[in-house]
Nucleic acid binder design. Structure first.
Ligand SMILES: [Mn+2]
Ligand SMILES: [Mn+2]
Ligand SMILES: [Zn+2]
Ligand SMILES: [Zn+2]
Lengths: 159, 159
DNA sequence: TCTTAAATAAGAACGATTGTCAATAACATA
DNA sequence: TATGTTATTGACAATCGTTCTTATTTAAGA
């Protein structure tokens, strides 16, 4: 919660348009679930969204929240923090470095940049707390995945 | 796998020093598990580390790999990609933005920076694949957590 | 070598997420 | 507006990554 009325409404409008375009039904559950995530600044998990939706829609199931969040993700209306639905991954490189991550297969590689290490972080960030470190996450499609057909291509070329 | 011999050995030396300093036992399992993660460039998950360790130590248990990875994390010898051991979290802000993340409680807030949006990503990154987007993750301690005593303070001031 | 606490392996347990299926509701059509 | 078709929902079982419990083994110091 805490996003401005104006911004929330803009997001709701985008939602209605996208959901109709996708040809899926506009249910009260989907409306309320999206309203919750669209008005949240805290990047909530499914359980938190569930609790907030229940305030207005006490009979909603956790299950429906899960399904709706993944649907919103597919529609490009929301995103996940870090790599979604994955196992914890580890790194023994403790030098200051950055990552390239493939959005299809999760391939992750290190890269270095002196320029990046020296970037200025806006002063306003200090209002959130003290800063320990910063690292850039570059998301793209690795060469191997680029060579394969994208499994997410729903329309067209199914001939 | 694929880290140079020299670098791997440097990491092994750091490991032996840290593990003795921490006063925990140097077991063959810990040694082999660290050797695997220290020589990997692919940021493996626990299952992958487990499989690689089993090649040299067929009786090791998945459990031990889990326990060892968390121990290595506590000792500061490795790190996790993204926020560790957490549920998936969502974001309805689809504008180009960056994040401040509290390393203690996971609080996550958006921030914007035109300067950051214009950063040059090293040419060498394109060797990994095509680039879709980039976002900076600033890790620190939020004000609320800074006000509380750090639960991870093991030594000293337990008086 | 002997002692002792720490670490391991095995398997049960747990918690987040997903699958199954009968009941329900959205929406196109009459 | 009433009806039919089909996607969606809610309940609950199942799955999968991770953690806990316990008996056994082992590292390391005496
Ligand atoms: Mn790395
Ligand atoms: Mn955000
Ligand atoms: Zn890939
Ligand atoms: Zn915090």
């Amino acid at each position: 919660m805490e996003i401005s009325f104006k911004e929330t409404n803009k997001r709701m409008a985008r939602f209605e348009k996208a959901i109709r375009q996708a040809g899926v039904k506009v249910t009260i559950q989907r409306l309320e679930i999206f309203r919750v995530i669209a008005s949240s600044i805290d990047h909530p998990d499914v359980e938190t969204v569930y609790e907030r939706v229940r305030e207005r829609l006490p009979t909603v199931s956790l299950d429906t929240v899960y399904r709706t969040m993944w649907m919103l993700l597919d529609l490009g209306l929301i995103s996940t923090l870090g790599a979604s639905r994955d196992r914890t991954r580890f790194d023994a490189n403790m030098e200051n470095h950055h990552h390239f991550v493939c959005s299809r297969c999760g391939l992750t590689r290190d890269f270095y940049s002196e320029e990046l290490d020296g970037i200025k972080i806006p002063e306003s960030v200090k209002d959130f707390g003290s800063i320990e470190k910063a690292h850039l996450e570059v998301v793209g499609v690795c060469k191997q995945c680029a060579a394969k057909p994208n499994p997410k291509a729903q329309e067209e070329d199914t001939s």
